[in-house]
Design a protein around this nucleic acid. Structure first.
Lengths: 203, 203
DNA sequence: CAGCTATTATAACCAGGTACTAATAGTATA
DNA sequence: TATACTATTAGTACCTGGTTATAATAGCTG
């Protein structure tokens, strides 16, 4: 072709296209045509090759994802993935420290994420419609860093009718990184509760 | 009409239609036609009257909303606006409880946000390159709800060379909602520190 | 009966595609 | 050099899920 040099080779165009769609999923093929300087057919063949669905499909997926996220908020309300749960007894959750959880400067996890995991678990382990954290006594034993997997283990230490004491220990590997004693109010005694914090939903 | 009695009056149909779309935004007019037992034109006139956009528009709106939510996450990293700061002495921050901070079911703020505001402030008030939370003793006095503005006040109670004790009280109006005693390590004594939590970034 | 609302029908048009067929340019290979 | 193959472009028919406009019909009301 005459203008071959002016345009990108296929590989690079594919990369560019992927990038363009990634940082603006609302872009049409028409727009891509303009930005990539190729025909709309080429854009479509490229999407086909790359397995990138059409605009409407992309929007639908995003919409469904957010809709599901909203619908499954109860699950979402727990920070970390619960891998074991014995109501009123114990529970385990895993939480991976990603980019968005750390201070970029130090790579150290922001404390509230570590705290949130432990707190969520403490609340989840209580077998009640609504559970609210009343007090927490916590200790950050060592800092948790980017990429580390934080495993929180919760044990219910005493379960009164309106209060429960839950102990949570979080580990990275064998190392203890966080320890907390939570007092959780349960909905059974709700009339007397003024303080409170999280609601725990179970589906 | 012959079958007037079989069908709903307009008002009720509008209510039903609104409800149907609300709990399944992905429904097409075709589907609505079947469920409402009226023609597709009627469905469309109804949507027009009610100001309900077409399926694709609804999906687009949902997709955009979720996309914006993701994009604004980085901003999220600053928990509360610091409005006053006297290093090694005291500080005040304000944090407004928005949709994304509460449990949708109850409208009660997730505890880790309230905690995060207090913790951020406790860390910020310490005049050091790196400050790390070692322990925290916290109490959620009453739940904070959607729309409320949480004002956190921090006071440095004792400041050793390597440790500082910071007390944080959070209020909504005059009401105390949260109280916490934080022990913060400062970088001056970093060699001896194993525990820790947050780095304090000051912009 | 006229005038009105509610409903339905019909047709043209639109965006943003898919699916398919075909033509062309350039490159590699036997 | 002829042939095969890839990459690109073009064009058409068709699809979904609508909008917009125009008209016809049913049923009620004063």
């Amino acid at each position: 072709m005459v203008r071959t040099i002016e345009r990108l080779p296929k590989r690079q165009r594919h990369q560019l296209l992927t990038g363009l769609i990634e940082d603006n999923p609302f872009i049409t093929d028409q727009e891509l045509t303009r930005q990539l300087k190729v025909s709309i057919q080429t854009v479509r063949l490229d999407r086909l090759e790359l397995g990138i669905p059409e605009l409407r499909e992309r929007m639908k997926l995003m919409a469904e994802r957010s809709y599901d996220a909203v619908r499954s908020l109860p699950l979402h309300e727990v920070i970390g993935d619960i891998v074991d749960l014995q109501l009123d007894h114990s529970g385990i959750s895993i939480f991976e420290i990603k980019e968005e959880h750390v201070f970029s400067r130090t790579g150290i996890a922001r404390g509230h994420h570590v705290f949130a995991q432990a707190n969520s678990l403490a609340v989840a382990v209580i077998n009640d419609e609504i559970a609210l954290t009343a007090t927490a006594d916590i200790r950050f034993v060592r800092s948790v860093k980017l990429g580390e997997k934080c495993i929180a283990k919760a044990y219910v230490r005493s379960g009164g009718r309106s209060k429960a004491k839950v102990e949570v220990c979080s580990y990275v590997g064998d190392e203890l990184v966080f320890q907390g004693h939570f007092v959780i109010y349960r909905s059974a005694g709700e009339s007397g509760i003024e303080g409170g914090m999280d609601g725990a939903d179970r589906n």
